[in-house]
Amino acid sequence: MPAREAKRSASTAISRSVTDYLQKTGGIEQCEVLTNRIRNNVDRYYTERELERSREFFSRVLNLNPSAIVVLDEYGGIVRANERAETILGLCESQLLNRTFDDAHWDVVDEEGTLISDNALPFNRVRETGEPVYNVEHGIRRAEGDVVWVSINAAPLWNEQNEIENVVAVLSDTTAQKRKSQTLQATIKQLEGFGRVLSHDLGNILQIAKGRLELSRETGHEEHFEAVDDSIDRAAAMLGELTTAMQAGRLVDEVSMIRLDDVFDQAWRSQATAKATDEVEEGIQIQANEMALQRMFENLIRNAFEHGTDTATVRVGSLADGFYVEDNGPGIPVEEREKVFEPEYTTKKDGTGTGLASIHQIALAHGWDVDIREGSDGGARFDFTNVQMSSPQHDTT
């Protein structure tokens, strides 16, 4: 066969997956070469087959593992990730392979939401010390803004030169436990604050009862005793409200559609309002807890008197998605408006700072937004929005 045709035949054979070729020349030497090549190719075939089986077995083991497993190279680049890692991190393996442990597409944060420095992350700790790390809990804030919480165990893999070649990290998703713990802590903190606020509100009721008793001694008029009875009933109901809140784990349990003017009128009558004036828009109906709303109104009325005078005017009106309460007192300076809802913050020498905190707490418990601005007469105005309203025609009372 001519040399050109021989080369063409060899090229065609190789293109059709022939592993090797040998030119036909004859002689025992060529038979030995052929034998060695066959043996080598068979050995290589079985070696590659064994490697492929090992890779498949390794992949199955990785993907059946209930924990997320991520393998990083010596520079912190991700070189392998199992299916659980894809689920936890919200990315497929091909996407993960383009990322590093300190990738800009995600932030690693602590419980306060503060970024953790790269040097403090498990990969760097393993690289620097050569020692494994265990049960390191971090939050990974993904590009979408959500945070997944993971507990991380990481260990080094050494090569034959006693150098760290890879770092293997095992991640367990602790998001559900973390959120449950955060919810529990928030509830405890909320109930603690509720107890402080309720104590303040009970103090208001007792002060009113004490004032009425003094008036009854001075005047002998029985209507003051009726006011004292009302105050005692209110105090007892408020204590029951605390018990319900602690059992339910929330501050506002049952809500119903109520008339705003009726509840405000009850709050107005519970305060010493003989010299004051109220102007209330009629027909406003909202979804609220009646007792909690009355407490909120009582604090707003008391705030108007304490920071203004007992001749103050308090107005209540409707908004597109809520209502407002304003007075004609001195108002609240702009620079103070962000602080007044903080517990124990007060501008009065003998104030407790709890009244406005109570207002804020009750609004939040209903899911309302509350904003402070200047009233129409220069006083303080509180806007309550995101309130579930009802039009007046739905009133059946």
Rank of each mutant, 00 (worst) to 15 (best):
P2F: 07
P2G: 12
P2I: 00
T12G: 04
T12I: 12
T19H: 03
L22Q: 15
K24E: 14
T25N: 04
T25D: 02
G26E: 07
E29V: 07
Q30C: 04
Q30G: 10
T35P: 01
N40E: 09
N40L: 13
Y45C: 01
R49Q: 15
L51D: 06
L51E: 07
S54M: 04
R55K: 09
R55P: 00
F58S: 14
S59Q: 15
S67Q: 13
S67F: 12
S67M: 11
I69Y: 13
G77L: 11
R80I: 11
N82C: 12
A85D: 09
E93Q: 14
Q95N: 10
D103Y: 08
W106L: 01
V108Q: 09
V108F: 09
T114N: 15
I116N: 07
D118Y: 03
A120G: 02
P122F: 06
N124D: 02
V126G: 12
T129Y: 09
V133R: 06
V136D: 08
E137P: 03
I140Y: 14
R142F: 05
A143G: 00
V148L: 05
V150Q: 08
P156N: 00
A169S: 15
D173I: 04
T175V: 06
T175P: 02
K178M: 01
E192N: 01
V197D: 06
G203K: 01
I205W: 04
I205V: 14
Q207F: 00
A209S: 03
L215E: 01
G220M: 02
G220V: 04
H221R: 05
E223V: 13
E223C: 10
H224C: 09
E226R: 10
D229L: 13
A235I: 10
L239H: 13
L239G: 12
E241K: 14
T244K: 12
M246S: 15
V252Q: 02
D253S: 12
D253C: 10
V255S: 07
S256V: 02
V263A: 02
F264V: 00
R269F: 11
T273D: 00
D278Y: 08
E281C: 01
I286T: 03
A288W: 07
Q294P: 06
N299K: 06
L300D: 08
L300R: 10
A304N: 03
T311D: 11
A312S: 04
T313S: 11
V314T: 03
V314S: 02
D321L: 03
Y324R: 05
V325A: 00
D327C: 05
E338G: 10
V340S: 02
E342V: 07
K348A: 13
L356K: 10
A357F: 14
I359M: 14
Q361N: 05
W368E: 03
D371I: 10
R373F: 00
G375Y: 04
A380I: 00
Q388M: 11
Q388T: 15
S390Y: 13
S390I: 02
Q393S: 14
Q393W: 12
